[in-house]
Design a protein around this nucleic acid. Structure first.
Ligand code: ZN
Ligand code: ZN
Ligand code: ZN
Ligand code: ZN
Lengths: 173, 173
DNA sequence: TTTTTTGGTGTTATACTGTAACAGTATGGA
DNA sequence: TCCATACTGTTACAGTATAACACCAAAAAA
């Protein structure tokens, strides 16, 4: 590992420090808008509004919490409403699922594809996304800077195993 | 077949390669037995049997799948049966939860506390635990050796944020 | 233009995952 | 004997997620 030498600590676990959250919202929303139009994907009202709701705070929101909000705002009351919006937002990389909480957060670094790393408080369920390479050492350092005490952690990588990759390649699909 | 020249790759993602699985079972079960008696914890029949069931393969098993098996074997049919056994096994570090799958696997390295890292096939849901330090680079290398194509990954760390830690310390609990 | 396809939405129903709470039992110490 | 602790049996319920089908509009193909 390099001697990280960070003069500027952008991308640190800001969510757990005081900051201008209006900035977070504007920055992320603008970037999402830009990328959606660039990628020619359909950023419909319900999808946009779902992202806006998630952006209201850095806490992770359960799907049914989001659904409740969407319903109050007139976007429909049935589970697929929320899950479809979330599927879209996750595909675009605008939202991550925090698996440990079965809950969702807006991505704070939507300008780059990345392996997200989260600091999750087991007590208040606040969530801070870091943009550092998620090595245990780097994460520990982020945590220290945020005053966060890591108790346990895990990493999960999803993909295709050798056998399944072979199947997908097969000409007789 | 890559010519990776593997003299001995202990701790690699063995689960995704041919291996003597009887060895896995004996090794892990013995170690669990030893640690349970060392730590004076109550390794009751239902708990032991739950571990044995999970050890039957390296696939992740959902709680209700485990429950079904426990029921067939006469250990009770209600959800708490499975969840209590799983809670115990996770506390002892004998089992991990694979969050992405809401499913559980026996730990392949129960002799040491660690940050588990998993390679999860999205197609067949097979799971390989690696015992390397879970850096993205190390994980990529493990994946390559196992013929596994990582498509996305994440890291989650749970603990206490600064504010919640302060509360816990507070004398006026 | 007409037809077809595609993608998004509305809705119902259902499956899967996880926990609270209380009663019963065994054990071991005061 | 009384009490505390830890494990188990059971009921009821809360929370999470998806399948499936009907409907519609806009884009693409004919
Ligand atoms: Zn913010
Ligand atoms: Zn992110
Ligand atoms: Zn094995
Ligand atoms: Zn493990």
């Amino acid at each position: 590992m390099v001697a990280t030498r960070q003069t500027e600590r952008t991308g640190a676990a800001e969510a757990m420090r005081p900051h201008d959250h209006g900035d977070c919202i504007r920055r992320v929303l603008d970037e999402a808008e830009r990328r959606a139009s660039e990628d020619r994907v359909n950023f419909t009202p319900v999808r946009r509004h779902a992202l806006e709701i998630l952006l209201e705070s850095h806490a992770a929101m359960p799907a049914y919490g989001l659904l409740k909000r969407l319903d109050e705002d007139g976007f429909g009351s049935q589970p697929p409403v929320a899950y479809r919006a979330l599927d879209f937002l996750m595909e675009q990389g605008f939202v991550h699922k925090v698996e440990r909480l079965n809950a969702f957060v807006a991505c704070m670094y939507p300008h780059e594809t990345h392996t997200p790393a989260f600091l999750i408080c087991r007590n208040c369920r606040s969530v801070a996304e870091t943009c550092v390479a998620p090595t245990p050492a780097a994460l520990r350092q982020e945590a220290r800077a945020a005053g966060f005490a890591i108790e346990r952690s895990m990493m999960e990588a999803e993909g295709l195993c050798r056998d399944c990759a072979r199947e997908e390649d097969a000409p007789c699909d």
